[in-house]
Design a protein around this nucleic acid. Structure first.
Lengths: 207, 207
DNA sequence: AAGTTAATTGAACAGTGTTCATTAGGTTGA
DNA sequence: TCAACCTAATGAACACTGTTCAATTAACTT
């Protein structure tokens, strides 16, 4: 067959990504293969290469969607609460998302191209995620320099990410299901308290 | 050839692991293959399967060695300093180790068996790493319940791990080379300050 | 109806992990 | 000394993988 034009390029791409995600959810990242995706959408292997540069490209595009979903989930958290609670809600949502889409989450952070870094647009999406945290921190510490807010956001969120990762890989072995959330709560509370404490001292010294 | 007995099983295993590590360091985890390892040590593919259950097993054994090296590095940090400084030194050493052995470090945390968890002995090694942190925290907060120390150690070290991972994957994009260390310092200082703060409050309330 | 075009194919190639019947070097016993 | 045995070591075979690209053929044009 040739020139079927059953689907546009965009449709083909969407079908492939969707099929790949299903495969990923059901069988994990190791099971992702071009032949399986192709046969799942009723096209041949070669057709995938009309729409994706290679399997790596397909993975990055899945990652982009995963990251979009994650960002959306975080954004859906109620804004009608104090920044500190919202940060905790973010962390919780982050943990839940990783739990619900464990294979997608694993692909997002495990997958690394042989050569070169993640694509730019992916990096921008991650930056946007950090941005959410920065907003809350800026609200909590309006007198802080922007650079310090940026550093704090990355520190705090790096921490949440690390806890999530260890949890996902069963390398926490402590305290059952609720442990991870207790840890992110503890992290956020103590980090913010420690920060306030330092600010108070600074003020005290200045005056 | 057969029955050469040039090397014992133990020697063969050591040769294979060592060759695999070299391959890993030079070409990354994706380049690790049974045929390459076999040819590097002058044996055939089949011989590897006399010593390792499969490639996964070989990877786990590399990971064990990586984790041992990491633990040793941390243990070499001077004990002749206050617990807080030692914790920072640990975090620093952790970052340095990940930087120096980036491919080994990536294999350690990316590699996940298709089915089932990491082997038990690996989990014990990780627990031992957490133990180092617990010692310092217990020294800092002698009145804290052991369970709280355990949780805090995992929280803090999960955070350091997360920062390290984002750094390694270039997903921090902030502040150049020194950023990661500034972040772990910030994390440890603020977390400990926040903890002390909370303890003071608790004491104040009680009295 | 014949010609043109390009969407789609799938065989081919080079690689992968894993298995296991075969082989050949070392050891043993006569 | 030499045949018998044993077993460490092999590497061909199998079923997979990603990727390419000449060949095919359905649909459009004339």
């Amino acid at each position: 067959m040739a020139r079927r034009s059953d689907h546009t390029r965009e449709e083909l791409q969407e079908m492939a990504l969707s099929a790949a995600e299903t495969l990923l959810d059901e069988q994990g990242g190791a099971a992702l293969s071009t032949r399986k995706v192709a046969s799942a959408i009723g096209y041949s292997v070669g057709s995938l290469y009309l729409v994706f540069k290679n399997l790596d490209d397909l993975c990055w595009q899945i990652n982009a969607r995963t990251l979009d979903g994650l960002t959306q989930t975080l954004e859906q958290q109620s804004t009608d609460q104090p920044p500190r609670d919202r940060l905790k809600a973010y962390a919780n949502a982050y943990l839940d998302y990783a739990r619900e889409w464990s294979h997608r989450w694993a692909l997002l952070f495990d997958h690394s191209t042989d050569e070169g870094d993640a694509p730019e647009w992916l990096q921008e999406k991650i930056a946007a995620l950090f941005g959410l945290v920065e907003i809350d921190l800026a609200e909590l510490y309006p007198n802080e320099k922007p650079e310090d807010i940026t550093l704090a956001a990355r520190t705090l969120w790096g921490g949440v990410h690390g806890i999530t990762q260890l949890k996902m890989r069963d390398k926490l072995f402590f305290g059952g299901d609720s442990a991870a959330q207790r840890m992110t709560d503890s992290l956020i509370d103590r980090y913010l308290d420690g920060w306030s404490h330092a600010e108070d001292n600074a003020k005290g010294d200045a005056e």
